[in-house]
């Protein structure tokens, strides 16, 4: 039973499962992520969606099943910013380039540009302990995007931020994706965020995580302004209904 990782798929999972001791966190998940697509994974808290994303990122082994992933740079945005406390903002952002051997001057130039994109220019020389939670997360986003990844995995990156900041960063993220067309997968518990950002929403069951519904959002909903659009709200309602129906069906 070989996986057909055709040119159109960046990543594919087949029967992927993960147990922690005797508890299954992820069970028999099969999915494919198309090149250049933006996919959301939503589900109730603690359902194992983070574990699923970690498996995609290679941070968690598969206890069963298979995964295939195209070659190409991978970036992972964790739930927490995970900054190096002894490095200034600009040196934190430049870290991926530094590890890739990019010369100092070039990587600092690119780091300043990335910091400007997340509107943190005035804080470039500060240290993480001098930043607010939202600023730290912006630094983490800048760091994730600086190396122009082919695949960007985001694990509820804006969950800890205030709404205004979150909308700003979501809009920024979507604009970046439209411009650079990398492949992105985001785990979130916000249906609005999922509908706004992605073309496809995968709904997870309560633990162990399984994909129980899939909702395609129209191009229209993503073109709309975040909060005000009716089409976005329609997409949110569709996805929420699908999730509720699927969970209801599971209980029966």
């Amino acid at each position: 039973m070989a996986i057909d990782l055709s040119k159109n798929n960046f990543l594919s999972l087949e029967g992927a499962s993960r147990w922690f001791g005797s508890v299954a966190a992820v069970e028999l998940v099969s999915l494919t992520i198309a090149v250049g697509s933006f996919t959301s994974i939503v589900g109730p808290s603690g359902c194992g969606k983070t574990t699923l994303l970690r498996m995609m990122g290679g941070l968690e082994p598969l206890d069963a099943g298979r995964m295939e992933r195209s070659l190409g740079a991978l970036s992972y945005c964790f739930q927490e910013p995970r900054l190096l406390p002894w490095r200034s903002v600009v040196d934190n952002v430049a870290l991926p380039l530094e590890l890739n051997g990019v010369p100092r001057e070039e990587r600092l130039d690119r780091a300043y540009a990335a910091i400007a994109r997340v509107q943190l220019s005035e804080a470039a020389g500060r240290f993480p302990h001098q930043l607010s939670g939202g600023m730290k997360m912006r630094v983490a986003i800048a760091r994730a995007l600086i190396a122009s990844p082919a695949l960007l995995l985001l694990d509820e990156p804006f969950g800890a931020l205030d709404e205004v900041t979150r909308h700003e960063l979501d809009a920024e993220l979507r604009a970046l994706w439209e411009r650079e067309q990398f492949t992105a997968v985001i785990v979130t518990h916000s249906m609005q965020e999922a509908a706004f950002l992605s073309e496809r929403i995968l709904v997870c069951s309560p633990r162990p995580a399984r994909i129980i519904a899939e909702v395609a959002t129209s191009k229209d909903s993503r073109d709309a302004r975040y909060w005000t659009s009716t089409s976005l709200n329609a997409a949110v309602r569709t996805a929420s209904d699908a999730m509720a129906t699927a969970i209801e069906a599971l209980r029966r």
Binding site: Y76, E80, R82, L99
Partner: peptide, 8 residues
């Protein structure tokens, strides 16, 4: 947490 970052 930082170790994972470096793995990525």
């Amino acid at each position: 947490a930082l170790d994972e970052l470096f793995s990525i």
